[in-house]
């Protein structure tokens, strides 16, 4: 359990999953307790499904002046299980800190992925959210898991901001918090872990002299390499028996990634499918189901 007068938290989620809401709830609860706190998103174009960050700072004694993103967090919370292998979520995580992950895997299994001097907390937030809230939106559930790992704010302080934010659904969200708090499993990670540290791609950016006139891009069609499939947490699955081959799904797909196969049934190219679910929503015959996972 992390006890400190000042705590920095970094939230990893995907656009639309509510990481920003999680951070806001924590900050509002801390402010309610008379502490100083801030919450803010990584500023950028909002794209549903794309990896996003949100940040918290809480200080029991002093006003917070820094407005930069959190690079040396005490706690990292990961709302989407897929992100753990996609980006370096533990980047800068302080020794003695904690990584809180939403995953269906057990803590014993997941800890094989890491080495370091911090704790790993794991909760199956998706199951809790689906059961208690009826949707796979884990922002409030993960707040409960966070509070198991840290006394960042008191549980009761969440009631007012939850009520304001969720109205009639505040009770269910509070319950999801509690359930997550009680079912979060924590384990100490060691620096002598068996797994080698993963290497994550670091983009090399050009110096100003290397830019072409007017920043033109002379390689046509390079967005083909841009795998928007990284953004998804769900993917479409077709039931061909129900399909009437109308092609509507391929027309509404914002990525244009649905094409008919040789038999005339439709399939998504998962390299581009970002899991938005529009195809399933628009299909006349409900031949498409969105299924968890990438």
């Amino acid at each position: 359990m992390i006890k400190d007068t000042s705590i920095e938290i970094r939230w990893h989620g995907r656009g639309g999953q509510g990481a920003v809401t999680s951070a806001e709830l924590i900050a509002l609860a801390a402010i309610h307790e008379g502490k100083f706190a801030q919450a803010f998103p990584s500023f950028g174009p909002e794209r549903r499904g794309a990896p996003v960050l949100a940040f918290n700072r809480i200080d029991a004694e002093n006003p917070i002046r820094i407005r930069s993103g959190v690079t040396k967090p005490d706690i990292v919370v990961v709302l989407d299980p897929g992100l753990v292998t996609l980006i370096n979520v533990t980047d800068g995580l302080k020794p003695g800190g904690c990584l809180v992950v939403n995953s269906t895997r057990t803590v014993e299994d997941l800890q094989q992925e890491f080495s370091g001097d911090w704790k790993l907390a794991v909760v199956d937030a998706a199951s809790i959210a689906r059961e208690l809230l009826g949707v796979n939106i884990v922002n409030t559930t993960m707040v409960g898991a966070l509070l198991k790992a840290s006394e960042a704010v008191k549980f009761d302080s969440l009631k007012a901001p939850l009520g304001e934010r969720f109205g009639a659904r505040a009770g269910a969200n509070f319950e999801a918090c509690m359930r997550a708090y009680n079912s979060t499993a924590i384990s100490q990670i060691t620096t002598t872990g068996t797994k080698k540290p993963k290497s994550f791609a670091v983009e090399k950016m050009p110096g100003w002299r290397e830019l072409l006139v007017g920043c033109m891009v002379t390689e046509p069609g390079n967005t083909k390499r841009f795998g928007t499939g990284d953004w998804k947490s769900q993917h479409p699955v077709w039931d061909d028996k129900k399909c009437i081959k109308c092609g509507i799904c391929s027309l509404v797909c914002p990525e244009g990634c649905i094409k008919p196969n040789n038999e005339g049934y439709y399939r998504a190219n998962l390299f581009y499918c970002k899991g938005c679910g529009m195809c399933a929503h628009e299909c006349w015959t409900q031949a498409i189901k969105m299924v968890e996972g990438t």
Partner: peptide, 13 residues
């Protein structure tokens, strides 16, 4: 488009 990691270089150029 240029994100914060490129805009400064573009303006400098």
């Amino acid at each position: 488009f240029a994100a914060p990691n490129l805009y400064t270089e573009a303006r400098r150029a």
